[in-house]
Simulated assay, not measured.
Amino acid sequence: MSKYSISQFIQSTKQKDLGQGFFELETERILEVNLNGLVWAKMGSMISYEGNIKFEREGILEHGLGRLLKKTFTGEGSQLMKANGNGKLYLADQGKKITIVDLAGDSIYINGNDLLAFEDGLHWDIKLMRRIAGVLSGGLFNVHLEGNGLVAFTSHYEPLTLMVYPGQPIYTDPNATVAWSGNLQPEFVTDIQLKTLVGRGSGESLQMKFSGNGFVVVQPYEEVYFSDKNS
């Protein structure tokens, strides 16, 4: 049999039940949700499903007026949908690599553009980066999640986790920062010399500074939702 036959193609690419539970990485870029109830997912991330599943946009006042105002300010990047029912749901986001974490009582901040899905029951809230609202346009929010449950987020290519220790801060490019531990609060600092070195169009003079004890996740890719107003 030819290694390029239809049957060989089907065998190598067909869906497989790996028995990993509620969230399962069908491939490194496709998330399978074994749904029996409700899951929150990024709007527009559904690529396929089977079974009896209903999709619903997040209600305008579903989580209170305060979060509505923040969602209005942050724009469409924070829009979520609910998938409710029984079946298999497949999620993806522009071919980005997917990472699953089990919070198990911990908390994490995830860039709003990189949050793919999370279990119902987790407490979550949109956090605005108010201090830089006058400097940057777009990408001004992240999502804080805490409790017990699974979270899936995305990154362009393989993510790198950097450990933050007391007295040893980590600096990152905001455009490449994906997530960080819930006990860290980033500061925004400007390095004029760096901007002079790399050119006015880069926006890399603005950095996120993480101090304390925790971790930061970065990706080898710079998103375009951050821009330096002074460039």
Rank of each mutant, 00 (worst) to 15 (best):
G134K: 11
V135L: 08
L136P: 00
G139A: 08
G139E: 12
G139S: 09
L140I: 13
F141N: 15
V143L: 13
H144Q: 05
L145H: 03
L145R: 11
E146D: 04
E146A: 07
G147H: 12
L150A: 13
A152P: 08
F153L: 14
T154N: 08
T154P: 14
S155G: 06
Y157I: 00
E158N: 14
E158A: 15
P159L: 03
T161W: 01
L162W: 01
L162S: 05
M163K: 15
V164S: 06
Y165R: 15
G167L: 06
G167F: 10
Q168C: 02
P169A: 13
I170E: 01
I170M: 02
Y171M: 13
P174N: 05
N175H: 09
A176L: 05
A176I: 04
A176Y: 03
T177S: 09
V178F: 04
A179V: 00
W180Q: 04
N183L: 02
N183V: 07
L184V: 05
E187D: 15
E187M: 12
E187S: 15
E187W: 01
E187V: 01
F188I: 12
F188W: 10
I192V: 14
I192Y: 14
Q193Y: 10
L194K: 15
L194A: 11
T196E: 12
L197V: 02
V198H: 08
G199L: 04
R200S: 09
G201Y: 10
S202N: 05
S202W: 02
G203D: 03
E204L: 15
L206N: 06
Q207R: 13
M208G: 02
K209L: 15
K209D: 01
F210W: 01
F210Q: 05
S211Q: 14
S211F: 07
S211H: 07
N213M: 14
G214A: 08
F215M: 06
F215R: 13
F215D: 04
F215G: 03
V216I: 09
V218S: 05
V218C: 10
V218K: 02
P220S: 09
Y221H: 15
E222A: 12
V224I: 06
V224A: 11
Y225M: 07
